[in-house]
């Protein structure tokens, strides 16, 4: 399942991009997708998402350094017991 949700977090001062991204990810339903545009490769965010069981796929950095990250909450069936 895909979702039109996209958050552009580039203009927010840290740590707000991470806060908003995690809040939005927590609100996802199983199987739902979210795309964020972070001001740079958000390593701490990726680590937190992995910790919480999300799939997160960062794209290549753009000319301004920003990175688009696709975040997906796994379906319940995919969640490891």
């Amino acid at each position: 399942m895909t979702s039109p949700i996209e958050l552009d977090l580039r203009r927010l001062p840290p740590p707000l991009p991470m806060q908003h991204a995690l809040d939005a990810a927590d609100a996802l339903a199983p199987g739902e997708l979210l795309t964020i545009v972070a001001p740079m490769l958000p390593r701490p965010l990726l680590m937190e998402l992995a910790q919480r069981g999300f799939d997160a796929e960062p794209g290549e950095p753009q000319a301004d350094g920003s990175v688009r990250v696709q975040i997906r909450r796994p379906d319940d069936a995919e969640t490891p017991a």
Binding site: P15, L16, Q19, L22, D26, P44, E48, Q51, R52
Partner: peptide
Amino acid sequence: PFVEWIALRRRVPRGVQLPGV
């Protein structure tokens, strides 16, 4: 405060509204 916030985030159940950093 940032690392404390991350630690909180890892410990509270989903759906609980966290205070910001």
